[in-house]
Design a protein around this nucleic acid. Structure first.
Lengths: 140, 140
DNA sequence: CTTAGTATTCTAAAACAATCGAACCTCAGG
DNA sequence: CCTGAGGTTCGATTGTTTTAGAATACTAAG
């Protein structure tokens, strides 16, 4: 569990980690970052959403996250890229209202798992692999 | 992660899935199994408890789970063994009532993360490493 | 048999999370 | 300027989680 992890998370989740904390990072601080991630993945709908994004953004050959999860229609971007129209496409294959999906997106962003941006009508969405790595690292 | 898993996901998410994938789904690792595990780890108190158990039961050299978390007094069992008096010791260093700690233990057991057994007054507790491996595997 | 220690179960309160529909905002095209 | 498509925010509802305390049960020791 290292400081770089904290940096990524705090950056991604926008929860600003100040200098002192990076130096002397308390267990509480560290733990809450992990619990945030676990919480984001602890809801079945949200996990599905995350897997769809993962699958469409960065699923390499043999990757398991997102395996078997399809977005209606074909993938919209090359592996490794960001996913366009993520929101609309995911709404189309989830049985949830748009406001609920919006909420789940925000939770995933808040945990630092994904990054989203809108440019006019283009909604782009990207998986933050560093965070996934940090979980794997945590599990070592 | 096997085809059965895929079946469940696609079924649950309402997304298309090829026929051949539906075939065998006997060894199910459902999506809900993963959310269960993530949920168990999504509470800060519970994650702390889990880390203490991990740290005291099976922390190998270089392991990160449980790093920095200490149970008052010295470790109660050799590395790799089960942790005795886990309940009492953890109660002693958490600021929670016994009933709450008991509840958290049950959640961890329910997620399959730990196994506990009582033999008379000896409460033995052990981390289920397979589950941790399955998470790492999931994250691949 | 009584007492102290250990853990669980039950109940209830408070806090939190998931979800929807409605209202809203923003941009692109007629 | 109007309209529609794509997202977000708000408020309400319903369900779940966290937590403590009291009652209970088991066991070891006196």
């Amino acid at each position: 569990m290292d400081a770089s992890f904290l940096y990524h998370i705090s950056k991604a989740s926008g929860c600003g980690l100040d200098k002192e904390l990076k130096e002397d990072y308390s267990n509480i601080m560290k733990l809450s970052n992990y619990t945030k991630i676990f919480k984001a993945l602890s809801n079945e709908q949200r996990l599905k959403i995350f897997m769809m994004i993962y699958k469409n953004c960065c699923s390499p050959e043999g990757s398991k996250i997102g395996a078997g999860i399809r977005i209606k229609g074909e993938s919209c971007c090359p592996v490794g890229g960001s996913m366009e129209k993520a929101f609309t496409k995911i709404c189309d294959c989830m049985n949830l209202s748009r406001s609920t999906v919006s909420h789940h997106f925000k939770e995933l962003q808040n945990a630092g798992l994904i990054t989203c941006e809108r440019e006019g009508q283009v909604y782009r969405c990207r998986v933050n692999k560093d965070v996934i790595d940090s979980i794997k690292d945590f599990m070592k």
